[in-house]
Amino acid sequence: MIRKLWGLGLCLALLCGASLAQAAEERGPVTNLPLPRFVSMKAGEGNVRRGPSLTHRIDWVYTRRDMPLEITAEYGHWRRVRDREGAGGWVHYSLLSGVRTVIVEEDMLDIRSRPDVAAPVEARLRAGVIAYLGECAQDWCELQAGGYDGWARRSALWGVTAADLQN
């Protein structure tokens, strides 16, 4: 009896381990790119629909070019996206860009000349500013916004994942 239970436990552990590995490596069925992943709005205006077709109702319209969005699903030419506030819906892929941007979540965020708290401050960004994302390393990401280029703490940004970190 104990041997059977141990075997069942091992089998369940293997199944759970396989599903965790599959979840960590989930890929979009259309693009074969990782899910979830971040993109940005290419257009200055884009309809967000309830489902993946033109026949579905428009729930709202994104009106901010370069806004970062997280793709959580794919269906044909449609991508299900989620914004910083958790709102989501389906957007046609032609409205999206692979150019990476982030939203500053901390008001008056220091942009430093290098990834170090002792480095000189090059600029300060208000909460809600959209910045272009460069490389990320440990707790810092390189940004470009308003003609300034520098490094900011990753924890103060929305639109960055652990996969963005370079070792």
Rank of each mutant, 00 (worst) to 15 (best):
residue 104 V to C: 08
residue 101 T to E: 01
residue 74 E to C: 09
residue 69 L to S: 00
residue 92 H to V: 05
residue 58 I to S: 12
residue 83 D to Y: 08
residue 95 L to N: 14
residue 104 V to N: 03
residue 67 M to S: 15
residue 89 G to Y: 09
residue 86 G to I: 04
residue 93 Y to I: 13
residue 71 I to E: 05
residue 98 G to H: 13
residue 100 R to T: 01
residue 86 G to S: 07
residue 92 H to L: 05
residue 76 G to E: 02
residue 98 G to E: 10
residue 61 V to R: 15
residue 59 D to A: 08
residue 98 G to V: 04
residue 72 T to G: 08
residue 55 T to L: 13
residue 82 R to K: 13
residue 72 T to M: 04
residue 80 R to M: 11
residue 59 D to V: 11
residue 67 M to I: 14
residue 103 I to N: 04
residue 96 L to M: 07
residue 90 W to F: 05
residue 67 M to A: 14
residue 64 R to V: 12
residue 70 E to G: 01
residue 99 V to Q: 06
residue 102 V to C: 10
residue 101 T to Q: 09
residue 95 L to R: 13
residue 99 V to I: 11
residue 60 W to L: 04
residue 101 T to R: 11
residue 65 R to Q: 12
residue 79 R to I: 00
residue 56 H to D: 15
residue 73 A to R: 15
residue 58 I to H: 00
residue 91 V to R: 06
residue 92 H to A: 09
residue 91 V to A: 02
residue 85 E to D: 15
residue 74 E to G: 12
residue 81 V to C: 14
residue 94 S to I: 02
residue 68 P to G: 05
residue 65 R to V: 07
residue 84 R to S: 06
residue 76 G to Q: 10
residue 57 R to C: 01
residue 101 T to W: 09
residue 71 I to D: 02
residue 75 Y to F: 03
residue 93 Y to A: 09
residue 65 R to L: 06
residue 99 V to N: 07
residue 77 H to Y: 01
residue 76 G to V: 00
residue 79 R to K: 07
residue 62 Y to I: 10
residue 91 V to H: 14
residue 86 G to N: 05
residue 56 H to T: 08
residue 66 D to P: 00
residue 70 E to K: 13
residue 55 T to Y: 08
residue 101 T to L: 08
residue 88 G to E: 05
residue 66 D to V: 00
residue 92 H to F: 12
residue 73 A to H: 11
residue 72 T to I: 15
residue 54 L to S: 14
residue 95 L to W: 07
residue 79 R to A: 01
residue 59 D to L: 15
residue 83 D to K: 01
residue 74 E to D: 07
residue 71 I to A: 01
residue 92 H to M: 03
residue 97 S to G: 07
residue 61 V to S: 12
residue 64 R to H: 14
residue 85 E to P: 00
residue 90 W to C: 06
residue 66 D to F: 12
residue 80 R to E: 13
residue 70 E to L: 07
residue 56 H to M: 10
residue 67 M to F: 13
residue 92 H to Q: 10
residue 59 D to Y: 12
residue 98 G to T: 13
residue 75 Y to N: 09
residue 75 Y to S: 12
residue 68 P to I: 12
residue 71 I to R: 04
residue 101 T to F: 11
residue 57 R to E: 14
residue 58 I to N: 08
residue 81 V to Q: 13
residue 82 R to M: 10
residue 90 W to M: 05
residue 68 P to Q: 07
residue 72 T to K: 15
residue 94 S to G: 03
residue 100 R to D: 01
residue 82 R to C: 06
residue 94 S to F: 06
residue 54 L to K: 14
residue 98 G to R: 14
residue 78 W to Y: 02
residue 74 E to N: 08
residue 91 V to I: 09
residue 96 L to D: 01
residue 69 L to I: 02
residue 93 Y to N: 14
residue 76 G to R: 03
residue 90 W to E: 10
residue 89 G to I: 11
residue 85 E to A: 14
residue 82 R to G: 00
residue 91 V to N: 00
residue 58 I to C: 03
residue 90 W to Q: 06
residue 66 D to R: 12
residue 74 E to L: 02
residue 74 E to V: 13
residue 80 R to Q: 10
residue 69 L to W: 01
residue 54 L to P: 11
residue 99 V to T: 07
residue 55 T to W: 07
residue 84 R to T: 10
residue 65 R to D: 01
residue 103 I to L: 13
residue 80 R to I: 00
residue 76 G to K: 05
